[in-house]
């Protein structure tokens, strides 16, 4: 019979001198015992090999966490370039921000206020329930949404082009810049007392939508028109844009 305890002690290197003697005797004389021990010795070797392989895998996985040397060489070159590009981008965007975005916003809010009603004095009376009167009432109360609807209806009825000017002002006040621009442009197709004033508001709408060149053109037209409306403002605004 194979002595398991003897074998266990042999592999855990805890045989006493007497047991070592017994182990050696049996190994030499008992072929079954020898065969078993040799088999287990092979398992020892094989399991060690497997264990080493597992540990190597673990180390390789750790190594894999390091950046690829080929790539890191590229990165060494790229890093300063990326940093420089980043810096340039930051400077550019700050510039852009300072020169355009921030200024546009600021310029617009500094200079824009909806035009006064210089067309039709409001009559607050139960007898005067016309769209036009109501439109100017809404406009005067800054109820621009209502005003727009009423100006549009009144314009259809009367074809008074000045109403386009107030509609566009209302759109601008509601920050509907695209429609405001279209409506001011419509108004500029007509010639009335407010035509030149539309250049001023259109310029502001262009500034707000970062169409600086167009804005400058409108301001110049206004200044060359002999119109006194917003003349000093147009001058200083034009200087800021140039």
């Amino acid at each position: 019979m194979i002595n398991e305890t003897l074998i266990e002690k042999y592999f855990s290197k805890s045989l006493t001198p007497n047991e070592t003697l017994e182990f050696n005797t049996r190994y030499e004389n008992d072929s079954n015992f020898k065969q078993e021990v040799d088999f287990l010795e092979n398992i020892k070797l094989v399991s060690e090999t497997e264990d080493d392989a597992q540990f190597k895998k673990q180390l390789a996985a750790q190594e894999a966490e390091y950046p690829d040397p080929e790539k890191s060489v590229t990165f060494k070159w790229l890093k300063p370039l990326i940093a420089a590009a980043g810096l340039i981008l930051i400077i550019l965007s700050i510039n852009l921000f300072m020169n355009s975005n921030l200024d546009e916003e600021k310029l617009f809010s500094t200079y824009f206020e909806p035009s006064e009603n210089v067309t039709s004095p409001i009559v607050r009376s139960a007898d005067n329930e016309t769209n036009l009167n109501n439109a100017f009432i809404a406009y005067g109360e800054a109820d621009y949404k209502q005003a727009i609807l009423l100006f549009q209806t009144a314009y259809k009825d009367s074809k008074n082009s000045e109403l386009l000017f107030y509609e566009a002002n209302s759109l601008l006040a509601l920050e509907d810049y695209q429609n405001a621009i279209t409506t001011f442009e419509d108004h500029l197709k007509h010639s009335d007392r407010l035509t030149n004033r539309s250049h001023w508001y259109l310029a502001l709408a262009y500034i707000k939508t970062t169409q600086i060149e167009k804005a400058k053109k409108e301001l110049k037209t206004l200044l060359n028109s002999g119109e006194t409306f917003k003349k000093p403002e147009a001058n200083s605004l034009l200087k800021k844009l140039e």
Binding site: E8, K9, I43, E50, D51
Partner: peptide, 24 residues
């Protein structure tokens, strides 16, 4: 080794600890 690898993990561990590591 080929057959050893076909054993379940717990058996591989058991034999590794017993014979390679020499644990009682």
């Amino acid at each position: 080794r080929h057959y050893f690898k076909q054993l379940g993990n717990s058996c591989q561990q058991m034999l590794t600890l017993s014979f390679y590591r020499g644990l009682t």
